[in-house]
Simulated assay, not measured.
Amino acid sequence: MTEVHVVVYCDSCGELFTDADGESVCFDTRYQAIAFLTFLPGRARWVYDGDKIVCNGCRVPDQCEQTGHAFTDSHGTTARSHGTTSCSRLCLVCGTSESEPR
């Protein structure tokens, strides 16, 4: 007897979709995998757009590239060598930092 299982890989980076313990998740059919990803709870929102499946790690930077970063309002100050300082802030969506000399 032969059994076929479907596992999900990100079409952008090739990451395997896993459960909270890091084990690959096996689905019975492609449709079952798509339904699961479509209604996936907040832990790791993978997106299926009808053609490609994209993991959260690839989706978030793409989102910021399209809509712009959502930087925090406050700037942290970092002291650097040679007496210079800079202000930095983080994007709330992807974690990218932006800094400027002070």
Rank of each mutant, 00 (worst) to 15 (best):
26 C>P: 00
83 G>F: 10
42 G>I: 10
46 W>M: 05
30 R>P: 00
18 T>C: 03
70 A>Y: 10
79 A>V: 05
73 D>I: 02
25 V>D: 02
39 F>H: 15
89 R>G: 14
35 A>T: 10
78 T>Q: 09
96 T>W: 05
17 F>M: 06
16 L>H: 04
77 T>Q: 12
94 C>K: 03
84 T>G: 04
33 A>T: 05
44 A>N: 08
47 V>Y: 09
73 D>G: 15
52 K>F: 11
90 L>I: 10
12 S>W: 09
20 A>T: 00
92 L>C: 05
54 V>H: 04
78 T>P: 01
57 G>H: 14
35 A>P: 01
100 E>T: 09
28 D>L: 04
28 D>S: 02
23 E>L: 01
20 A>W: 05
90 L>M: 11
52 K>N: 14
41 P>Y: 06
101 P>T: 00
60 V>P: 01
72 T>K: 10
55 C>G: 12
59 R>C: 02
67 T>E: 09
24 S>M: 07
85 T>I: 04
64 C>S: 03
46 W>C: 04
73 D>R: 11
40 L>P: 08
72 T>Y: 09
19 D>N: 12
74 S>I: 12
84 T>M: 08
85 T>P: 03
71 F>V: 02
38 T>K: 14
51 D>W: 10
78 T>V: 06
75 H>Y: 11
24 S>T: 05
36 F>Y: 15
64 C>M: 08
69 H>W: 06
91 C>D: 03
45 R>W: 08
19 D>I: 01
21 D>Q: 04
40 L>K: 14
13 C>K: 08
94 C>G: 05
78 T>Y: 02
22 G>L: 07
38 T>H: 13
40 L>H: 14
32 Q>P: 01
70 A>D: 13
80 R>H: 01
86 S>W: 09
18 T>H: 00
80 R>M: 03
58 C>W: 02
57 G>V: 08
12 S>G: 04
91 C>A: 11
56 N>H: 07
